[in-house]
Structures are given as C-alpha cells and as structure tokens.
C-alpha cells in the first residue's frame, strides 16, 4: 500500500505529465503551426542531400544571379550556386548553432545558479555580483567582444553567444533554487543524511527543470538571431558555408539587383524564430506560468 503511494506521487508520475504537456502543446493552434513549420525546417536540414536539387557548394549549376525559375526555385547566387539548395543545407548550421548555444548557456548557467543558490552566504553574494557584472553589457556586444578574443568562426560564435547568455540562466535558476531550497523536503533529505552534491543533483535540479526548459525555449529564438547576427557581421560562418546569416552577409553587395539572395535565407531565419517563439510561448504557459511573465 505504502509502496504504491510512493510510486504514484513519486517518479512514475513524471511520464504521464510529459505526455500531457505534449498534448497541451499540440492542441494550441499557434503552437501547432509553430511545430509544423519547425518540423519542415528540421526535416529539410536533416534530409538536405535528398531534398536539395543541387549540391550546396557546386558552382555554375546555373547562370550567375539568375532570378527564381523552375530550374532554380529561389534563383542563383553570384557563383551560379542554387540558393534553394544552399538554404536547405543552411538549416543544418543555423538551427544546430542556435541549439548548441542555448545548451551551452543552459548547462553552465543552470549549474552555476543552482550552486550559488543552494550554497548561499558569501558564495551567493559574489555569484550574484558576477551575474550583475555580466548583465552590465548588452549580450550582443559581449558576444562580439568574445569573438574578437577567440577569433572568427562558427564554433567560436557558439561559445561567445553562449557565454553572453549564461547570466540570464544563472539569475532565474538561482531564484528558483532559493524557492525550492526553502521547501521542507530539502531539509528532510538533508536530515536523512544526503550530501550537498546529492541534494543538488537529485533533488534541486529535477525540480528546477521545468523552469530551465521554458527558459531554454524562450532563449532559443534569441540565440538563433544572435548567432545569425554575428555571421551577418562577418564574424561567424565564413564562405562558402551556407549559414543563413552569412548568406545575408554575402548578398549585401547585390541585393539591389538580386534580392532573392537575401529574401530566402532571411525568410528561413524569420520562420524558424517565429516557430520557436510560438512553441515557447505555449510551453511556458503549460509548464511554468511564473517564468513567462515579464520576460
């Protein structure tokens, strides 16, 4: 009897809850459209070699700067490369770079937030001060500065935008940790004799996970834009990489004569950010109503 009770209120409840979350997500029209668009973009990126009619880097598959036609749906660029094929392949870079960036700031920021929030005292004091110092700069400015140190390139952009995103995760996760730390079960766990590490990893982190998930989804859109922005400044992906921001950067000299070079990668960027926003919005309502407000 008591064993059953523990199972009902404990671990086993996690599974149906997630299923419920997914259902609530899909039932919302906005989130459904978002999921659909994102699915198409991700599908295109994953199966790019089978979908793209041409190789992303093969030159002179058509005339240079040709407008959209049945041969080249989105026209060609200045080397006669197929813009449609490049855009499809571009999802591989733009989307994965955005996800990697958020994972980077999420992991480091959350661990830091849980650690200082749980430890408290002087550690918390200096931790909060470090967060405040990093929040003292606009994230994109901090990211540009870090790229300047690390050097130009897509992996460095991930690290730079990732570092710039750390304080936002750390601050929110620290707040959530403080709230959970005050709950009696944490004290109970300590009373049974669980060490600090065990409390943090097995009791605090699972409890702040909904908050972290929501924050990560809400930050993913920003991360996709930020990484593309750095590529647009010429600091990220280098030619011939078909990253969307870099494609926009490379189109800047002739967008007046061949706007299709600029419109389609930009549209892909716009659609992916829009779909992530639509899903993140609904997810935050379902998972953690507190985080979505005022952010």
């Amino acid at each position: 009897m008591s064993v059953e009770l523990v199972q009902q209120t404990g671990v086993s409840s996690a599974k149906p809850r997630w299923r419920k979350v997914v259902r609530q997500l899909v039932m919302n029209p906005g989130a459904f459209i978002g999921a659909l668009i994102l699915l198409v973009l991700v599908f295109g990126a994953l199966f790019a070699p089978w979908i793209a009619p041409y190789d992303w880097n093969e030159q002179w598959v058509g005339p240079r700067l040709a407008p959209p036609s049945t041969d080249h749906f989105f026209g060609t660029d200045r080397f006669g490369r197929d813009v449609f094929s490049r855009m499809i392949y571009g999802g591989r870079f733009s989307l994965s770079v955005g996800i990697a960036t958020v994972l980077f700031s999420m992991i480091i920021g959350s661990l830091f937030g849980v650690f200082i929030g749980y430890t408290g005292g002087r550690v918390d004091h200096f931790g909060v001060m470090a967060i405040d110092v990093m929040l003292g700069f606009p994230p994109i400015v901090l990211a540009i500065l870090i790229v300047a140190v690390l050097g130009v390139g897509l992996p460095n952009v991930v690290v730079a935008v990732g570092i710039a995103g750390i304080p936002r995760f750390a601050r929110v996760v620290r707040g959530a940790t403080l709230a959970i730390k005050a709950r009696p079960f944490v004290e109970a766990t300590q009373a049974i004799g669980a060490g600090h590490f065990r409390v943090m990893v097995w009791h605090l982190i699972p409890n702040v996970l909904p908050t972290i998930t929501v924050l990560a989804t809400l930050n993913l859109a920003g991360a996709i834009i930020s990484t593309a922005s750095l590529s647009f400044l010429g600091l990220g992906a280098q030619p011939p990489t078909p990253e969307w921001g870099a494609m926009l950067y490379q189109s800047r000299e002739f967008y007046r004569f061949a706007p299709w070079n600029m419109i389609f990668p930009g549209l892909a960027l716009f659609l992916s950010v829009m779909s992530v926003n639509l899903m993140g919005d609904r997810l935050s309502e379902v998972l953690d109503p507190r985080v979505s407000k005022g952010h």
Binding site: A221, I225, A228, S229, F232, L248, R252, Y255, R256, P259, M262, I263, G266, L269, F270, L271, V273, M274, N277
Partner: peptide
Amino acid sequence: LAIPNFFFILVLIV
C-alpha cells in the same frame, strides 16, 4: 519579435 532587424531593414530597402 521574429523578424531579425537586419533582415527587416534590407527588405524595406529592397
């Protein structure tokens, strides 16, 4: 919220 501002300004210029 979704349109990157560098893309938006380019579209307006075009």
